[in-house]
Nucleic acid binder design. Structure first.
Length: 570
RNA sequence: GCCCUCGUAGCUCAGUUGGAUAGAGCACAGGAUUCCUAAUCCUGGGGUCACAGGUUCAAUUCCUGUCGGGGGCACCA
């Protein structure tokens, strides 16, 4: 809707400038807003107010000039008013609305192409493969997935990636913990390490994998497969280092498989999994450090190697290589992000937990030091999720290792509701997730409210089909018959869909789609309650059927965009 | 202590990048169904946009400070 008017206004401004009526040293942003009060028209622009200063004229006078230079050749406008301090209030002709509905017939629902094949990498989840995903990971997973879908729909060439931290201390800890669980599985009474992973999942995992892991160990050290528990434990004791490595490898692989399954249950997928260990082995990290050194951003102090991140706005310089010679996690991250750039991505988006926000400045600094513009890297932070049940907080004691897993939530409320709730809030604000509400099948629960709107429409269309009523072609739609308040409201809701998607994509804020869908569902339910679609008047029924089918298309497109199902019956 | 972030109706949250009288859902009170799904709709009350300054024709929005919630400040990952 905006697009069409933008052209018109742009043209009027240009003509005003050419005619000398306005100076327009710089073209102002064309702001449009949908007025609260319908008396202020269908779409309003305060552009004249913004120009008042630079033009040295009264806003209303400027508005007058703009109106005089408008050239509405296609007859889109039914009226323009200059109101209040200098608003331009536009009112559209029926033909305009019809054109908006026709746009929705296209495969892409008229969503504009903001980028043509520009390559963007969205990295999300990237949880350490040391345990199942918890609820916070789930929020990041859904946000990353939704952003990827959003960017794809406006024309970006999107790659989804998961960075696997399979090197370093957390994997050593996992290895030590799983070795202890393996020994327990063979009947030995031993404790897991002090700072190990205490979760029950490792007990189960090593119980299931006991024979396989042991066999793998035997093969690796060239021993015969142990025949009983005593022999197995003897083998482990004789080769503890190898045993630990085998345990760590098997455990992290199994846990990653489980993570993939957890994401799958939430309709979240990845194109690539990138292994930190592999990056290190391929020399990617060393290469990045060499380039930083070459560019003069590294220095040595107190036996360690530092990166001069303060040159790019970080609070302090960061250690790249510790005095004991080990590379820091940050060093690996630099290598990974440099490699992303090298693969030809124009833009890098990372989805991180908000507890990592202190990390943004240093990674950004590293990328800038490597010659990338700061705008090419963007981090989306997701805040904590507070689980509640009927308003009461659900306790999550991480100390015991028994936290609420993502899978538990998805199993209880389903993928659709989980995704919807995660996307109902801006990513960087805290989220309260009420498990009781999410399963409720009533208007209190916005997921069902939206899905129900879609199911109702399907029901109407089924009914129409039974009565051999066809949805008409656009040409045959008497749009001017749809003149009641609820019909107008619904048409306007539909008309702003493409604008909403474009805006959500530009801001990387999928929650705007969710809010839109709730709003659209509301417009539809109101319409449904006030008007009968299938009735005596054939022309009117046809027009309403067309409207309903348009609504169905948008609901489907929008739900698909956030990865939520559009059921045909409830 | 320093940095980031948030503070909007009783609750959960939107607010179109600075515009007209600040919105929605829930909760609460009342009402609507011979008819396409009442899992819906309609009506009503409810606000010092945390507070104090500043910039502006115009501030919930931008700047500064204060208070409060959350997070971050390792040669950890």
């Amino acid at each position: 809707m905006r697009q069409r008017l933008e052209g018109l206004l742009q043209h009027a401004l240009t003509r005003s400038k050419e005619g000398g009526a306005l100076k327009l040293d710089s073209l102002p942003p064309l702001i449009f807003e949908i007025p609260r009060d319908p008396r202020f028209g269908d779409l309003a622009s305060p552009v004249a107010l913004g120009l008042a200063k630079s033009e040295g004229q009264a806003p209303r006078a400027i508005a007058q000039v703009i109106v005089e230079h408008l050239d509405d050749a296609d007859g889109l406008l039914a009226g323009i008013e200059i109101a209040g301090p200098g608003y331009l209030n536009f009112r559209f002709a029926p033909g305009f609305w019809k054109q908006c509905l026709v746009d929705l017939e296209r495969e892409d629902c008229g969503v504009p192409r903001l980028a043509e094949g520009e390559r963007v990498l969205v990295e999300y989840v990237s949880a350490n493969p040391t345990g199942p995903l918890h609820v916070g990971h789930g929020r990041g997973a859904v946000l990353g997935d939704a952003v990827a879908r959003l960017l794809a729909v406006v024309g970006y060439d999107v790659t989804r990636e998961y960075y696997v931290n399979d090197a370093g201390k957390q994997i050593d800890t996992l290895a030590a913990s799983s070795l202890a669980r393996l020994e327990q599985a063979w009947g030995r009474d031993c404790e897991i390490p002090e700072d190990g992973y205490p979760g029950e999942y490792l007990v189960e995992l090593m119980r299931d994998q006991r024979d396989a892991v042991t066999a793998q160990l035997a093969e690796r050290v060239g021993a015969t497969e142990p025949a009983d528990a005593g022999a197995a434990l003897a083998l482990i004791d004789a080769h503890r280092d190898a045993a630990m490595e085998v345990c760590g490898g098997v455990a992290s692989r199994c846990l990653l498989d489980q993570i993939v399954a957890d994401m799958d249950a939430l309709a979240v997928s990845m194109d690539h999994f990138v292994s930190e260990r592999e990056l290190r082995q391929r020399g990617v990290v060393d290469g990045a450090l060499a380039e930083l050194a070459e560019r003069g951003f590294l220095y040595e102090e107190e036996g360690a190697k530092w990166f001069r991140s303060t040159q790019f706005g970080d609070e302090k310089d960061r250690v790249i290589e510790r005095s004991d010679g080990a590379l820091t996690y940050f060093a690996a991250d630099i290598g990974y992000h440099r490699e992303k750039l090298a693969r030809g991505f124009a833009e890098l988006i990372d989805v991180w937990g908000a507890d990592h926000h202190g990390y943004v400045a240093r990674v950004s600094a590293a990328l800038q030091a490597l010659g990338a513009d700061a705008e090419r890297f963007r981090v989306l932070l997701v805040q904590l999720v507070r689980l509640t049940r009927g308003g009461e907080p659900v306790r999550m004691g991480k100390r015991s290792g028994e936290f609420v897993t993502l899978r538990e939530v998805v199993d209880e409320v389903g993928s659709d509701a989980t995704r919807f709730f995660f996307l109902m809030r801006k990513g960087d604000s805290q989220l309260e997730f009420d498990l009781d509400l999410a399963v409720k099948q009533s208007s209190e629960n916005p997921v069902f409210y939206v899905q129900y709107a879609h199911a109702r429409i399907c029901s109407i269309l089924r009914q129409a089909e039974q009565e051999s009523l066809a949805v008409p072609e656009a040409d045959g739609v008497a749009i001017e018959r749809l003149d009641s308040d609820s019909e107008q409201e619904l048409i306007k809701s539909l008309a702003i869909y493409a604008d909403t998607v474009a805006e959500a994509a530009r801001e990387r804020e999928p929650h705007k789609i969710v809010f839109y869908l709730i709003d659209l569902a509301g417009s539809f339910h109101r319409f449904y309650n006030q008007q009968r679609v299938i009735g005596e008047d054939a022309d009117l029924s046809a027009a309403r059927l067309y409207l309903v089918r348009s609504t169905q298309r948008v609901l489907r497109h929008g739900l698909e965009l956030v990865g939520i199902g559009a059921p045909e019956t409830m």
